[in-house]
Structures are given as C-alpha cells and as structure tokens.
Design a binder for these strands. Structure first.
Lengths: 223, 223
DNA sequence: ATTACTATAGATCGAGTAA
DNA sequence: TTTACTCGATCTATAGTAA
C-alpha cells in the first residue's frame, strides 16, 4: 500500500491530532471509532491497514494499544499539509509537474533578440542562456496557467526591429528542480500545455535533463 | 449532506489546487478523473455529490463545465487546513472540553497548605481560592494530557510538614470559560480523566457553574 | 475489558451506453 | 466530443462473536 486512501489519511490525521506524531498514544479501537464516528470493527480494520502500510507502529497490550505515527506516516501528512498550504497561502507560489520535451528551436532565436535580452536583464536580473527549456504539463493544469495570467507577472514589452515586431510576454520567477529561472508566457496566445523556461544556465546540461524526464516547476507570484 | 466524506473532501481539494477557489475552472469529468486517478463516471458522480452538497457551483456547457468552489466548500477546506496546522505548528495551547463534577473535598485541604500556597503565589502569581474545580474530560483526551506532561509546565516542589510530605505537582496556566486559573497535575499519578483547576476566584460562583455543565479549558504552553 | 475474525449487508466503482 | 444513467462487480462496513 503506497498511496493512502482518503479514509486512511483521515484516520492518520485524527491520530496525529491526538498527539501520535510526538508520542505513543494509548487508544482503544473503540475510542478511535468514537472519534471517527464509525464502528469499533472499522476502526480496528483501519489500524490494521495503517500498520500494514507502515504508517503507524503498534504495541498491543491485553487492553488498549500504544500507537505512534512512523516517519512514513508523517510524510504522508506533511504532503497533505503542503497541498493545503498551496491552496490557502496561494499568493506565494504555484507548482507544476511536467516532462521535458524538445521545442522546434525557435526559442533560441527569440531569446537572442537584444530587445528581449536587455529587458530580461533589468527586469529578471539575468541574461538567459540562449534557448528555452520546454516542459509539457498535464493538460488539466492549464487551469493554473489561467490563474497566473489573471494574477499578473513581470511584463516584457514588445519591440520592433527593422524586420519585424516581437510581441509582449509575461514572465514569472520560477525554479525548475530548485534551479533559478523564469517562465515566459506570450501575451496573446491561448493557454498551451507547454511551459517555456529561461534561465541564466544551460538547464539541460546543469540538471542533466533529457526528453521525458519529470521536473517540478515552482512559480513565484510575489515577485 | 452536511459533513463531507473523505473522498469528496479530497476531490474538493484537487479542485482548489487547480484554482477553483478563486476562479471558475474549466474541466471535464474525464480530466478530473485523471487527476484523481479514477474513472470518468466516478469523477462525474463526485461532482454531482459536491454540487448537491452546495460545495461547488457548476455551469455545464456542451463540452466541459465551469466549476467554482462555494463559500461552504471553502469553509470545509479551511477546517481541514486548521487541523493540519494544529498537527504541524507546535501548539501554543491545548483545548479541552469537559463537564463539571464534584470532587471529594480533598482539594480544599491541599490548596490551603501554606507550602503550596506560597509557591502558587510566586510561580503562578495568585493565591488560589480554597478548593479545586474538577472537570471530567472525554476519556480519549487523556492522550493530550500525556502531551502536556512531556511538554513540561510550572513545577511546584514537594515539601514536608511535621505530619507528612506533600508531593510535587506540575501546573499550567489555563482559562476556564475565559476566566484565569491554572490546572494542577500531580507529578506521580497516571493520567486521569479529571482535570483539577485552581483560580484566584471562586469559579463555581463567579461563572455560575453546576455539576454537569460543559466548560472549555484552554491550557497555555508558552510560558 | 480488549482485538479482530467471519459473514452478510451496504456502499462505491466503472463498463456499457444513451442523450 | 461531452455528462451521467443503469446495473453487475468489487470494495467497505458492521453485527455477531471467539480468543
């Protein structure tokens, strides 16, 4: 049992609320059942599942049992807590997971235009390594992209060369697998399922990334 | 549907992570299913349940649907978040609910011993009204008592009179229904389901308490 | 007291499919 | 494409009870 079913996570949470993360707590299946508003048998079964999944340790006496949450159990709770922090603390960051894909090389062309480079330097604080790192995000997560655009980021203004016009883009400071960079969203364009990242470093090389690798991108909203 | 089943709360959480607390999000039951790692039918059913429970609003188009979390839904998530905060943020206070019961009068004897009274005055800052107010807590909550003892409180040392020895006790500043006082835990003794409170005032009289009345006790750890 | 098994009742899931 | 129905399969809950 690797990923915890919702009702088992809730049970683990109740145990944590009773102090089982810091100490062994003495609790009978009947008492837990009362807390969970279910039957003694169900509470007993849940404890067995959690024990099998190594989320808790138990010391069974003739009466009661001493229960403590394991490191694995704490991690499960911590992950859940992180998600709630993301929901409520939002203004600070948005997290995407995605996989590395190859672009069509046009990223290099754009990121070398001095009209963009100068602005990147003053507004983002770095000169990007030529090219963009393209990360394909889960289709569903484009909802988060809409959120970003609504929220607003760092604006890179359009400019014109003697040949053509380069459009406005919106940037957000971001990290990819903890490395500093920024994502770049074309001002006009529908929400795509590809995120384009720029960075002062050659990310593929620095992070040893290949197509298909899973990466985590954290986007910072508070500039 | 008043209280949310665990799997529905998880679904609500996923929607919130996709931004549905701040905006309408566009999502198909199939996409949600993928996110929840379940079937399209189940995702659809969950959305119906959440809609019926007024946790979300939906606008169904010919494709997709626009979903936003209602105030009721936000509250449900916020409550869950609070519980996680309680687990992870080191608690600065512990809350008990219990009912007033009568002791056997020995509280008065102890709280009048000058060996205790002098220490109460210097370490707690008040001279207790003679007697203890006894509050019976939910049996399961004695786990929280263990937490308290591990955490450590204000120590009142043992002392000896010409007749006998009075044992060490541990105190915590506390309020009972917002009135100032302290709880007193005998150093040796197993965790009981009775809390003994002392206070500068005659609490029964001041708060018009009778046996069987429900009271709330807040114990402060940071001191 | 307990914990936790068995057996059955009940809830939930998802393939198939209509609209 | 969608959403969401039906209904048999599967999972979960609990009464009864042994240890």
């Amino acid at each position: 049992m690797s990923i915890l079913k919702p009702y088992l996570l809730q049970t683990l949470k109740e145990l944590a609320l009773l102090g089982a993360m810091r100490n062994k707590i003495e609790i009978s299946s009947n008492e837990l059942a009362k807390q969970l508003q279910t039957s003694q048998q169900t509470a007993s079964r849940y404890l067995l599942y959690l024990d099998n999944g190594e989320m808790i340790t138990r010391e069974l006496g003739i009466k009661k049992q001493l229960i403590q949450i394991t490191d694995l159990g704490s991690e499960a709770l911590d992950e859940e807590f992180s998600e709630y922090k993301q929901i409520f603390d939002l203004p600070s960051k948005v997290v995407f997971k995605g996989i590395i894909v190859s672009g069509m090389g046009e990223g290099k062309y754009y990121t070398e235009q001095s009209g963009y480079v100068d602005q990147f330097k003053t507004k983002l604080g770095f000169i990007p390594y030529p090219g963009t790192l393209n990360v394909e995000i889960d289709f569903i997560e484009r909802n988060k992209l809409r959120l970003l655009k609504n929220y607003g980021g760092i604006i890179i203004d359009e400019f014109t060369t003697k040949n053509r016009t380069f459009g406005r883009v919106m940037c957000f400071n971001a990290t990819i697998n903890m490395s500093k960079g920024a994502i770049v969203l074309p001002w006009r364009s529908h929400y795509s399922h590809i995120l384009e990242l720029i960075s002062p470093h050659h990310l593929r090389k620095k992070l040893h990334l290949n197509d298909g690798d899973m990466v985590e991108i954290v986007i910072y909203l508070d500039e």
